[in-house]
């Protein structure tokens, strides 16, 4: 009926401090970790610093404004979170002080039975030490050995002390007493315990109590469900690939109902993208047609009014995750055409150039498309072909008369990476052949070259350049060597709303039915240092003499294979496609046989 | 509510959902074909009259080919193909129909290639591939058409697939070398 209340503030401060520390400790550790980690963050490779410069210079004003507006503020040392953490710890200090200065708490603490304190020994004392301490103290405090000229009171105190010391000794040595001490904290067995409410009386029984009740109702009935439901719906509404579940199911529906009579073009992909749920949420008053037109405007590099421009840039920025989401769905449906078209659409959005035979040329800055289409004595459609001409002629072909602008364009063109295949095989770690039912992976040796580099046959590379460590570590994790390469540099994409990096998507198809067999692998670690090499095809006369393999960095790409090797011996053919998500003219497409032998 | 037009013999539904519309169009298509069917005891067997007509047109085409009258042969065979699409009811045995179409298409492909109509040939070849005909001669012709159309990357992809299914094919190997060489030239 009647409860003891925490009038003396003995209990609730501990509870409050415990709650605070439970929250603050992980938060503090996280903040410290983030602070240190942000300083170690891997910077974009300095490999193409000239291109980075141009990447900034050639960005139009509208996009500069957009990037400034949506810049993710890097939280430094002084951020909101740090402030909250500091305040939290201050609060802990205040509560600590309260507890410390609380008489009632001290009193309660003093009644705690501590045998080590009573015997004046450390908690790690050995049996011998305990016994000798007891002997010394019992002699000192024995009622018979005590000084005779003490008052009754003093005598009683000393007697009590003697009893306690004996109890302390027993608590550490005698089995029964020790049991009691361990279980109940006191050698005499269970002590008197009090139960009560760890709140001051005024909060519960008097006028403040309705507020407490309302507070509880608000917390349990409103705030908690709101937070939990918000978190739940947010988790439920996004797929693993980071797109809205409605968008994912729309893509799945398109692919499920895909008819072979449908022609797959970049336009189809853009049509599908325009129906994404993300856009509906961002701009509920606009329809898919508007988004489709905005995407078109972006590809045609048309400028819209200021408001529409911002919408357009946000729509374009979102295509990154949407396209990867679509790719995930299409590879799961084993649809090769859609998967390849999706990556080509990606390129075209990144470079703001529609997919066409001239995309490799039109992705370059400063190109006069009209003059290019009208001119062109020879059929120049590729960057490689472009670099067979001297600079002056290139200027004529591209319709660039200004020398500095021509130099800009040439710089960009020569830094667009091309992948050259040096070696490709199916590899089973620790084996020399691919055995039936083993788990192979695809091991590629590639060379990242510039379109202006002269071609040379892969045989120019001695085998030793392709060899890798075959130790136990390498066999346990064959993909580790590929991950040791530097991350790819920032993409040259001045017309993309956000600064970006990207590499290639590796797709594997079964040649028998021409269908995709696994989800794509993103290749974003390769050295681009070869792009700086001076090996201009217009200058090299004798490849044999000029080529030095040690000047070239060989790249490694390891693609995991999703299925085990077939159970029968034989040759099985697969098509491997490495499609760049960033540039036109960077792709690699070849057939790789898997030779299964005993 | 479902309505039936006695004149056109077609069904219609107000506010139909996507699936219902599809269902309706299927029913209506069958109905229209049924209405046009003169034989009350029709079977899935291909109608003899149509087969005769198509065969006649096709044979005319073959004759003209022998006489090197290629444009006319192309016209005849195309007409035969049109007939096979128009004059066959949806319930006729699909396997027979497909074989008929594929056989005629193979001839049309060669006629197109001979006359330099590469885009047309490509369409027919893709149809053959899509409907399960993956023999080497299809890949050979498709690679050839793509090379002539200057689509060297696509040509290389095609002949690599052809070689995967028939690794010892000499013609495909030669085409692979050619498409690789042309692709290298294309890339400077």
């Amino acid at each position: 009926q009647s409860y003891d209340y925490d009038e003396k503030a003995e209990t609730w401060p501990f509870f409050a401090m415990a709650v605070l520390v439970v929250v603050l400790l992980p938060l503090t550790l996280m903040q410290i970790y983030e602070l240190f980690n942000s300083q170690k963050e891997e910077k974009f490779g300095e490999q193409t610093s000239t291109l980075n410069e141009l990447n900034q210079v050639l960005v139009p004003q509208s996009i500069k404004k957009f990037r400034a507006k949506y810049k993710v503020k890097k939280s430094g040392v002084w951020s909101k979170k740090t402030l909250i953490v500091c305040l939290g710890w201050c609060l802990v200090a205040v509560i600590w002080k309260t507890i410390d200065s609380n008489e009632a708490v001290r009193e309660a603490a003093s009644t705690i039975f501590d045998p080590y304190l009573l015997l004046d020994i450390s908690t790690s004392a050995t049996e011998k030490e305990i016994r000798s301490a007891y002997r010394k103290l019992s002699i000192k405090f024995h009622p018979d050995k005590v000084a005779k000229n003490l008052s009754e009171q003093q005598r009683a105190v000393l007697e009590e002390q003697y009893v306690l010391i004996t109890k302390a000794y027993k608590a550490l040595t005698d089995e029964v007493t020790r049991e009691n001490y361990l279980q109940y904290g006191h050698p005499d067995g269970p002590q008197a315990t009090s139960h009560g409410i760890a709140l001051p009386r005024f909060l519960v029984e008097s006028s403040a109590s309705p507020f407490v009740v309302v507070g509880y109702i608000a917390l349990l009935g409103l705030i908690l469900p709101i937070f939990v439901s918000r978190w739940w719906s947010r988790t439920q509404s996004v797929t693993k690939k980071g797109i809205h579940v409605k968008t994912a199911s729309y893509f799945a529906d398109r692919l499920f109902n895909f008819k072979p009579s449908q022609v797959v073009t970049s336009d189809l992909i853009l049509d599908w993208l325009s129906n994404a749920e993300e856009y509906k949420i961002m701009y509920p008053h606009l329809g898919p047609k508007v988004f489709r037109n905005l995407l078109n405007d972006h590809l045609q590099r048309a400028s819209n009014g200021e408001d529409l421009n911002e919408i357009k840039l946000r729509v374009v920025a979102k295509t990154h995750s949407l396209l990867f989401g679509l790719l995930d769905v299409s590879t799961n449906f084993r649809n090769t055409e859609i998967s390849l078209a999706a990556i080509d659409t990606f390129k075209s959005i990144v470079q703001a150039t529609p997919v066409s035979p001239e995309s490799q040329i039109f992705q370059l800055p400063n190109v006069d498309q009209k003059r290019f289409s009208e001119g062109s004595v020879d059929d120049v459609r590729t960057l490689g072909k472009l670099f067979t001409y001297d600079e002056k002629k290139i200027g004529q072909i591209l319709g660039i008369s200004d020398e500095s602008r021509l130099q800009e364009t040439l710089k960009v063109a020569s830094f667009i990476p091309r992948l050259k295949l040096l070696k490709a095989e199916f590899k089973v770690p620790g084996e020399t052949v691919v055995t039936p039912e083993s788990i192979p992976h695809i091991a590629l040796k590639v060379l990242v070259v510039s379109p202006k580099h002269k071609a040379f046959p892969p045989s120019k590379f001695p085998q030793v350049f392709f060899e890798e460590e075959q130790d136990f570590e390498a066999q346990k994790d064959p993909f580790a060597s590929a991950l040791e390469q530097p991350p790819v540099p920032q993409t040259f994409a001045p017309l993309f709303p956000v600064e970006r990096t990207g590499g290639w998507c590796a797709l594997v198809m079964l040649q028998k039915d021409g269908k995709v067999i696994q989800t794509p692998l993103v290749v974003d670690r390769l050295s681009f240092s070869n792009l700086d090499n001076d090996f201009d095809k217009r200058e090299i006369k004798d490849v044999e003499a000029s080529f030095k393999p040690e000047n070239w960095v060989v790249g490694t790409i390891k693609i995991p294979f999703s299925q085990p090797a077939p159970p029968q011996n034989g040759d099985y053919f697969f098509r491997v496609v490495l499609k760049s998500t960033e540039y036109f003219g960077s792709d690699l497409d070849f057939t790789l046989p898997m030779m299964v032998r005993d | 509510s479902l309505t039936y037009d006695a004149n056109s013999k077609l069904l219609a539904l107000e506010d139909a959902s996507f699936d219902e519309l599809m269902n309706l169009s299927q029913i209506n298509k069958l109905t229209q074909n049924l209405v046009g069917e003169s034989n009350p005891n029709f079977t899935p067997q291909p109608r003899e009259t149509s087969t005769v007509m198509i065969k006649k047109l096709f044979e005319t085409g073959l004759q003209q080919t022998k006489q090197h009258k290629f444009p006319e042969a192309l016209k005849s065979i195309s007409l035969a193909l049109e007939m096979s699409q128009r004059k066959r009811a949806p319930w006729e045995a699909f396997a027979v129909q497909l074989q008929e179409v594929q056989f005629m298409l193979k001839n049309r492909v060669d006629l197109c290639l001979v006359q330099g109509r590469f885009v047309d040939a490509l369409q027919d070849l893709e149809f053959l591939q899509n409907t399960g005909l993956t023999t080497s001669d299809v890949f050979i012709r498709k690679t050839d058409a793509l090379i002539k159309l200057q689509q060297f990357e696509l040509a290389k992809v095609e002949c690599e697939r052809g070689l995967s299914l028939d690794p010892s094919n000499v013609k495909l190997k030669a085409l692979h070398m050619e498409s690789t060489r042309r692709l290298a030239e294309y890339n400077g």
Partner: peptide, 22 residues
Amino acid sequence: NQAMARRYESILTRKEVNINQW
């Protein structure tokens, strides 16, 4: 049967698309 018919019908459309693309 209808799938094949659709595929055949799409030949002209595909031809146009290819011509535009290339």
